[in-house]
Design a protein around this nucleic acid. Structure first.
Length: 781
DNA sequence: TTCATCCTACCCAAC
DNA sequence: GTAGGATGAA
């Protein structure tokens, strides 16, 4: 038996042992939310509740899996039946995202209106393709450059459905400038709706709305669900939207055994219709709900917590709470001010290298607002050979070759799947959009002979259709089917991607691996759209790069947050409306609360943009400007590439690279170990030592032009006292030369003139480069 | 009608 | 850097 009272604090205990009736748990960041859910799961099973009558809805399958896994381990020694993981576990707890759950019910009880063919879940690319198709079909916005892009239209359509507002209303509220096109956009939206019905396709929003419709129209299905799922838990409840809340209400029934867990301060998905009112109104929707608050923070050291509390203090909040730390000691967060976003990348990587002395790679994360912002960091990491894994961004399953192969599989199940048909058809030479549609219209009638004749002029496509026919005739496992498809596809891939097909081949092998754990092809395909299984294998030897949204619910020993300047964070989309701005603030809160021991905030002084000719000055993010100065330490990158500590209140604190870790008040840290010395870095596998010096640079402080004040700190770890960081580029012999500007590298110091027409220039963040004079703008002294 | 090429505007987050 | 739209040749 598990001693719940001993292993949980009182609030957690209450949450884990209140099993009947509605419960709302307000769980502050790092308050042991997952632990609480895990213990409650274990408790339910110990009380004799069959695992199969528990439904655990989480934000990602990853977190569902982790919870089920941990609960299983907890129960290992108890005599009770184990909890089985997996989204579609037959005997175990059902767990996964709302969307995945919806699909699993819909495939079992087909909703009316989708009788023909099979139901196929669309992924992001399919949706864009379909909307584009509708747009072209209608001829709306053709040749009108002010007409929004397809992506944009997809966003508006999804927003209107998620917020359950008329599309005109969404445009009025959020895209006033598009109001002139509202009619056209509305027609596209209507056409897209019809398109999905006609081709047996479900987009993300359909999954939820069709499940709701099913439950309302079919009492038998509702009864079945209620009988089956007698205990429901919903994680990240603050990020549910209206239809999700209604689904929860429907499934649980009034007074049902439903536990919602969330934190209104961490609501960061309003953009897709998440509504904080759901969590605020929970007690109204479920009268008599038990409300429990978890406020003790086990994750972060006090200085990090002080800073995050300060961020939160500015935000309006309904469930007011102030987290207090269970952990003492620790360093203050560090604000680093690089000269530009380019040198920021170098500084970030130097920091990472430093942290690798004390933390395993997977315990270090770089977080950012949007996927593209990590680009420079990725380049720098590659340069040093530091392995990393990026979350949020292009999905593995959206790579062209993966989509190609999956299109065959989709057509086997659902011959009406037009996006898949178009993909397959487009592979044949001489077949374009028009021909594709003509052939599709013939093929959909199911007359094999007519189809064959129509394809006479396109032998490749005919071979495709033959393959599909063959595959439909015999039953297949996902693996065997994919193997056959891949064999057929391989020559085409080699022709289409002559440069890198071997790499893609590997990707396909990986696809086979993933498929091996599925019995049903349709589940495999829908899972690829709903939650990328390619992301699931955890790489313990890779540093993590992640969007903040994808970082939700996770934690790291060291967190580096980049691009904290206006336009980027907060996003330029979020400055117009107060509610958007508040969401950015919560996003900042979420980002900072991911850190256990170390938090570094990077505020570049300029941003590179090719539009306006090089580096443009940047304004520090209000989220940094508003922070009380005593809550963080600060470093500026000096022009010569070093770091200067400036205006730290407690001047005695060590704030150089290596942080206060070597100084007073070291962390009694989790996973940290106390001290950086000792070169654990050398032992880290797969990570070569960074170059000590940039090529040809002069080590040390040989003072090129810029005066480095005495407080200037060496940019390298203290364990290598003599070595400047790779980015503390060399300096020229004093007095020899001036400065120049380069379109890409920005302003740099001329080190040497290489007659007749070249210069050796030191660019902060890039090191020495030899550049032709014509690409440089020289500054006259 | 398809395909190659050029050019421009894009870049927010995810199921 | 790239997607995707416009443009013109085959």
């Amino acid at each position: 038996m598990i001693d719940y009272r001993k292993e949980l604090n009182p609030a957690q205990y209450e949450a884990a042992t209140t099993l009947e009736g509605p419960v709302l748990v307000i769980a502050g960041a790092g308050s042991g939310k997952t632990r609480t859910i895990v213990y409650r799961l274990a408790n339910l099973v110990e009380q004799g509740v069959p695992a199969s009558s528990i439904l655990l809805l989480t934000f990602t399958r990853k977190s569902a899996r982790e919870m089920l896994h941990r609960a299983g381990r907890l129960l290992e020694h108890s005599a009770t039946a184990a909890v089985h993981g997996g989204v579609h576990g037959v005997t175990g707890v059902q767990g996964g995202t709302f969307h995945a759950f919806a699909y699993s019910v819909l495939r079992q009880f087909r909703p009316s209106g989708y009788e023909a063919g099979d139901l196929t879940v669309m992924d992001g690319a399919d949706i864009v393709d379909a909307v584009r198709h509708c747009k072209e079909n209608l001829g709306v916005g053709k040749g009108d450059r002010s007409f929004p892009r397809t992506q944009n239209i997809v966003g508006l359509i999804s927003k209107s459905r998620n917020k359950e507002l008329d599309i005109d209303e969404v445009i009025r509220r959020e895209a006033y400038h598009l109001l002139v096109h509202a009619e056209g956009i509305g027609r596209i939206a209507a056409a897209y709706h019809a398109y999905r019905r006609e081709h047996g396709l479900l987009d993300y929003d359909d999954l939820l709305f069709e499940l709701e419709r099913l439950l309302r129209e079919r009492a038998d299905v509702l009864d079945w669900c209620r009988a089956k799922f007698r205990y429901i838990m919903v994680d990240e409840y603050q990020d549910t939207n209206l239809v999700q809340a209604r689904l929860v209400h429907l499934l649980a029934g009034e007074g049902g055994n439903i536990m919602a867990v969330g934190d209104d301060a961490q609501s960061i998905y309003a953009f897709r219709g998440a509504d904080v009112r759901n969590i605020l109104d929970f007690p109204k929707l479920f009268p008599g709900a038990h409300v429990i608050k978890l406020e003790e923070n086990y994750r972060s050291v006090q200085p990090v917590l002080d800073l995050t509390n300060a961020i939160l203090a500015e935000a309006p909040q309904a469930y007011r709470k102030k987290l207090f730390a269970a952990r003492e000691g620790g360093d203050r967060p560090l604000v680093v001010r690089p000269l530009s976003d380019l040198t920021q990348a170098s500084l970030v990587v130097s920091r990472i290298v430093e942290f690798l002395r004390s933390y395993p790679p997977h315990d270090i994360a770089v977080l950012f607002r949007a996927g593209y912002q990590s680009y420079h960091v990725e380049v720098q990491l590659n340069k040093l050979g530091v392995k990393f894994r990026k979350y949020g961004g292009l999905r593995y399953s959206e790579a062209a070759h993966v989509k190609d192969v999956l299109s065959y599989a989709r057509l086997v199940l659902n011959p009406l799947d037009l996006p898949a048909f178009q993909r397959v058809a487009a592979m044949s030479k001489g077949v374009g959009p028009k021909t594709t549609l003509k052939l599709y219209d013939i093929a959909r009638l199911g007359d094999a002979e007519a189809t064959r004749r129509a394809c006479a002029r396109h032998p490749e496509l005919r071979a495709d259709l033959d393959l599909l026919d063959g595959l439909r005739k015999r039953p297949h496992t996902p693996t065997s089917l994919l193997e056959e498809v891949m064999e057929h596809y391989k020559p085409r891939m080699e022709a289409a991607f002559p440069d890198d097909w071997p790499r893609r081949q590997q990707g396909l092998e990986q696809l086979l691996q993933i498929a091996a754990s599925y019995r049903d092809l349709d589940l495999f395909i829908s899972d690829l759209s709903l939650e990328d299984p390619g992301e699931e294998e955890e790489n313990r030897d890779s540093v993590v790069l992640s969007t903040i949204h994808s970082a939700k619910g996770l934690e790291w020993g060291a967190v580096l947050l980049i691009d904290l300047v206006e336009e980027r964070f907060p996003s330029r989309h979020a400055i117009a409306r107060a509610e958007d701005f508040e969401e950015e603030r919560r996003l900042m809160y979420v980002a900072c609360t991911r850190a256990r021991d170390h938090l570094c905030l990077f505020v570049p002084a300029s941003l590179y943009s090719r539009g306006d000719g090089g580096n443009q000055p940047a304004v520090p993010s209000p989220f940094v400007r508003e922070l009380p100065a005593h809550l963080f330490d600060e470093q500026h990158e000096s022009y010569s590439g070093g770091l200067m500590r400036r205006d730290v209140q407690n001047g005695q604190r060590a704030a150089g690279f290596g942080g206060g870790r070597n100084g007073a008040g070291g962390v009694g840290g989790i996973g940290g170990g106390g001290f950086a010395q000792g070169g654990r870095f050398d032992g880290a596998p797969g990570i070569p030592r960074p170059p000590m010096f940039a090529e040809g640079t002069v080590p040390g402080r040989a003072g090129g032009g810029a005066t480095r004040p005495a407080s200037s700190l060496p940019a390298s770890p203290s364990a290598q006292p003599a070595a400047p960081s790779p980015l503390a580029g060399g300096t020229a012999p004093a007095g020899q030369c001036g400065y120049c500007t380069h379109r890409i590298f920005g302003r740099g110091k001329i080190v040497q003139h290489l007659p007749p027409d070249k210069y050796r220039v030191n660019f902060p963040g890039f090191g020495l480069k030899v550049i032709m004079a014509e690409y440089l703008t020289l500054e006259s002294d």
